[in-house]
Amino acid sequence: MAARSYGQYCGVTTAVELVGERWALLIIRDLLVGPRRYTDLKQGLPRIPTNILSARLKELQDAGVVRRVPLSHRGLVYELTAFGCELEPIVLALGRWGFAAMGEPEPDDIVTADSLTMALRTAFRPDAAAALPTTGYDLHVGDVGLRARVRGDALAVRRLDAGAGTGADAVIVAGPEIRGIISGELHPDDALARGLVTVAHGDTALLGRFATTFHIDPAAAAA
């Protein structure tokens, strides 16, 4: 448990004491994507001081949220325990709640593969996807590339390896404007016409399917 105590006997208090320290939830966000080495976590959170990263990992391990385990050729990695994995719906709900207040990115804001993966998982609408054909998307946002496959009400996302062939139905290239597509504030046809988003491979109509499959209504999130 973190050193700070709020001195209250309450489940919310205990949760905040366990995972409420600065950077802790972002470490958990990245570990929800998969096990990570210390260097992977540092690369994904470039602004975190190394001493803070070490301290947070130790606190999360002591709390039973994270454990350190050997993973074949990757050596020692950090992964979430079963207790830590229970945070997934909470983190996704926080992502939807925060989406309404994101606004425009600052000049030095970055998008990482893990943050974009969790953004897609946050915005995924399994009910809408279940009514659509199986579709594979290669999504490029800045320097980050992901491959998302939607089959029925299931979503699988992985990092797109450099030089990987085009195995997707649609290759979507975007910048921060992808948020407008997900929010519905930017219509896919308008985004294409203005050159804000491009479909580099596949039928451009698949951008509309993407917008249906991945959607967060900011007004509903803020309500």
Rank of each mutant, 00 (worst) to 15 (best):
Arg56Asn: 14
Arg47Gly: 08
Gly75Cys: 01
Leu31Ile: 09
Leu80Met: 03
Arg67Ser: 14
Arg47Asp: 06
Val33Leu: 09
Val65Trp: 03
Thr50Cys: 15
Pro46Gln: 09
Leu53Asn: 07
Gln43Thr: 14
Thr50Met: 12
Leu41Cys: 04
Gly44Val: 13
Ile28Cys: 07
Ala55His: 06
Leu76Cys: 04
Leu71Lys: 15
Cys85Val: 13
Pro49Arg: 12
Leu80Cys: 06
Pro46Trp: 07
Arg67Pro: 07
Thr50Asn: 09
Ala55Ile: 07
Arg74Met: 03
Glu86Met: 11
Pro49Glu: 15
Glu59Ile: 15
Tyr38Gly: 13
Ala82Gln: 09
Arg68Ile: 11
Val65Asn: 01
Ala63Glu: 12
Leu80Glu: 09
Leu57Gly: 04
Lys42Glu: 13
Val33Ala: 12
Gly75Asp: 00
Ala55Met: 14
Asp30Glu: 13
Pro89Cys: 03
His73Leu: 00
Ile52Asn: 11
Phe83Leu: 10
Gly64Lys: 02
Thr39Arg: 11
Pro46His: 11
Lys58Glu: 04
Glu59Trp: 10
Thr50Phe: 13
Arg67Gly: 13
His73Cys: 00
Arg68Lys: 15
Gly34Tyr: 00
Arg37Tyr: 05
Lys58Leu: 06
Asp30Asn: 08
Ser72Gly: 10
Pro49Ile: 14
Leu45Ala: 06
Leu53Met: 15
Leu45Pro: 07
Glu79Gln: 14
Arg68Ser: 14
Pro46Thr: 12
Glu88Pro: 01
Pro35His: 08
Gly64Ala: 00
Leu53Asp: 05
Val69Phe: 05
Ile28Glu: 11
Ile28Ser: 06
Glu88Ala: 03
Arg37Ala: 03
Pro49Leu: 15
Arg56Pro: 10
Val65Arg: 00
Arg74Cys: 02
Arg37Met: 05
Ala82Tyr: 06
